[in-house]
Design a protein around this nucleic acid. Structure first.
Length: 654
RNA sequence: GUCCCCGUAGCUCAGUUGGACUAGAGCAACAGCCUUCUAAGCUGUGGGUCGCAGGUUCGAAUCCUGCCGGGGACGCCA
């Protein structure tokens, strides 16, 4: 907040000054932290860029600019350094006191209606760690957007009429010879995890198809019955998909992930979204009926010649097959149009479940809806969180909007793409999967629900939790904790570790999942941030217990000038804390959420060094103790807010 | 075949809208630090032709071209 003001004012001052002195209009002023804070608190390489244009030496330009430069509040002096950098030094004390009041305050922003669609797991089996990356990225994006002031709606799309659900239905009906009543019993049986049961059943079915290709007739028949909502088969599909979605919701809730709406494919079909979208596409000429050639009898979207699809052999995309059925991409275009409020029809809504915090999860329905349902859809910006393998399809959807002359909405259709989560051969083997000689030499092995290859999210959380609980139990200074408290701490640490692990890698990096690496609580990990926070909390708790005054009230802060006494290490905590709001903004703009975890990790490292070097409670000198306490307090507030933003819990003790 | 992503220390990764320095962390290895706010921590040591070769530039891990290695996408699947 304070930093933003300084940056803004400096930018303006420099722009006008360069214009008056050199008659040159700058299109940007880069202001960043210098590599080391000993050099200054904010720096610009402006003069190096200007040197080119003005054909003068950078240092000379810098000297001219720096002379009599009007400095914003909190900025004490400007100097010319290195090859011609302008470096600004802050009044550390004044800045610190001002910053402490406004730690992690978001920039002003007019709230936009934004939809984030994430998770989207086929409701036919347990969720695995590939889905986990999607959900954690999506959920964190939602939190960041909300922090920035947007009005965010979180959607978890349910493909309840697809092949994957159909295959499990086929397995129940034909392999197990079970109907809705039997399946209902399984769902209600507390001794089985229904999603785990379906995980095995689904891969069993996939194997059955391989040995009995004729069984594919069952699938076609089942898909048809589901789509036309016929008899026990369709009842079974609904039963299964609802039970699995409930399981997924429970799993995600363990990590603090909630949704606003479950849009269901069955409702998109029942409400004829596609028919309407199809009319629009036909009218605009975006799709045409092929009478010749390879795609004879299909309705295709002509993409040849459009910028995004240049150089492709067969860029055209079939939306309606020659047998008259619509492809997934077609339905996706209709759904995307609805998200922007561009389809002149909508869903009805009913309550799916209530979260413990009171939030309601709604689902779409084609039947009568609830009058209490909020308004969904009609967003100005849409983020679809889907892994990079869907990039082509996402481009087709976006192009669909463009061809319908919705340029702005096409630009605001954002594919948040990220790389997949795979398994290291060692982890695959540890899971009891067969790993061939050639596979053993590969860097990673892809997961596959179909083949039953994967690490289930609940198993990961369970493993993490028992390891964390163990660690808490072993700790020497944790006596006096009840079993329930220890369990609680274990849970919080596990969540912190998992969420952090899913965020810390750049989104374009394949995560080759390794159990040992994921289970670590040391170094660059969630628990490191939690531990640092617990430590700083302890300082203030202990001081209060022993009646040591930190002197952080307004009067005490104003009475003492901090400027001289703040060492570089102390000041660095404050200065880096001030960088965080910009980091969150940068993270959202680049969809690179790892910048936030990275900043927090470095900040925590600085704090831990500070912690060892500068004891607070036992410092006898009041002024010195106050200086240290102020910096610790800034760190404490920063971590509280930032961890809250990332939904990483702060345990009471560790 | 066309397109996209990745290649930085033994391993996992930061750093890539060009810039300050000796290219940074974590893990692993080695050496220290717990009567002092919690050692899930801190301090130190060793460890790198930034895949290769050219080019642009005052300046390149970062931009351009080509190549090599790994992964992915391009379906009348979802």
């Amino acid at each position: 907040m304070i930093l933003e003001q300084i940056t803004e004012q400096l930018t303006e001052t420099l722009e006008t000054r360069v214009l008056t002195l050199f008659g040159h209009a700058l299109d940007r002023v880069v202001l960043q932290s210098p590599p080391r804070l000993a050099m200054g608190d904010l720096a610009t390489p402006l003069c190096l860029e200007l040197a080119k244009v003005l054909k003068r030496k950078p240092r000379e330009i810098a000297e001219t600019l720096a002379k009599d430069l009007k400095l914003p509040m909190f900025v004490q002096k400007v100097s010319v350094e290195g090859a011609g950098y302008l470096n600004f030094r802050f009044d550390r004390g004044a800045f610190t006191v001002a910053h402490m009041q406004s730690v992690m305050s978001p920039p002003a922003h007019a709230g936009e209606r934004v939809i984030v669609e994430h998770t989207n797991i086929n409701p036919n089996k347990a969720a695995h760690i590939g889905h986990l990356r999607n959900a954690v990225l999506g959920d964190t994006l939602v939190r960041c957007l909300e922090w920035l002031g947007e009005h965010v709606e979180t959607q978890n799309y349910i493909d309840d009429t697809g092949v994957q659900v159909a295959d499990v239905v086929v397995a129940f009906e034909h392999l197990l010879k079970e109907g809705p009543a039997d399946v209902q019993k399984r769902i209600e049986d507390p001794t089985v995890r229904f999603d785990y049961f379906c995980w095995d059943l689904y891969s069993r079915m996939a194997n059955y198809y391989i040995d009995h290709p004729e069984a594919e007739a069952w699938r076609r028949d089942t898909l048809h019955r589901i789509e036309t909502r016929e008899g026990d088969t369709s009842k079974l599909a609904e039963l299964i998909s609802r039970a699995i979605v409930r399981r997924h919701s429970t799993t995600m809730l363990r990590l603090g992930i909630e949704y606003d709406l479950l849009p269901k494919e069955s409702d998109i079909i029942a409400l004829h979204f596609w028919d309407r979208a199809f009319e629009l596409l036909k009218k605009s000429g975006a799709v045409i009926h092929e009478r010749e050639g390879k795609h004879k009898g299909c309705w295709v979207m002509k993409l040849e010649g459009t910028a995004d699809f240049e150089g492709m052999d067969e860029p055209d995309k079939i939306l309606v097959r020659s047998n008259g059925t619509v492809t997934y991409t077609g339905k996706d275009i209709a759904y995307q149009l609805w998200k922007f409020g561009l389809l002149d029809r909508t869903f009805n809504y009913r309550k799916f479940m209530s979260y413990p915090d009171g939030r309601i999860l709604w689902e779409t329905t084609a039947a009568d809806g609830s009058p209490e349902a909020p308004k969904f859809g009609s967003a100005q910006r849409v983020f679809n969180v889907i892994d990079v393998r869907q990039a082509y399809l996402q481009r087709v959807v976006r192009e669909g909007l463009r061809l319908l002359d919705h340029q702005r909405e096409a630009d605001n259709s954002i594919h948040f793409s990220y790389e997949m989560v795979a398994l290291t051969p060692a982890t695959a083997e540890a899971l009891g999967l067969e790993v061939s000689e050639t596979d053993r030499k590969r860097p990673f092995l892809e997961m596959s629900g179909r083949r039953g290859v994967g690490v289930k999210i609940d198993d990961l959380i369970d493993a993490m939790q028992s390891k964390a609980t163990e660690a808490v139990r072993e700790g020497s200074k944790r006596e006096g904790l009840s079993d329930a408290e220890i369990e609680q701490l274990g849970r919080e640490i596990a969540i912190g570790a998992i969420r952090y692990f899913m965020l810390k890698f750049g989104r374009n990096k394949v995560i080759a999942f390794d159990f040992n690496e994921a289970l670590t609580f040391e170094g660059d990990s969630g628990p490191y941030l939690q531990y640092s926070t617990v430590r700083v909390e302890n300082i203030f708790r202990k001081m209060q217990e022993r009646g040591v005054d930190a002197k952080l009230d307004d009067a005490s802060l104003n009475a003492l000038t901090l400027n001289e006494g703040l060492s570089d290490e102390m000041w660095e905590l404050v200065r880096r804390s001030a960088d965080l709001p910009a980091a969150v903004q940068r993270a959202v703009e680049s969809l690179e959420l790892s910048v936030i975890t990275h900043e927090l990790f470095e900040l925590s490292q600085k704090f831990n060094s500070f912690y060892h070097k500068y004891p607070i409670m036992n410092e006898k000198d009041d002024a010195e103790r106050q200086r240290r306490a102020v910096c610790a307090e800034v760190f404490r507030r920063t971590m509280r807010s930032a961890l809250d933003l990332l939904a990483i819990p702060v345990p009471e003790r560790m």
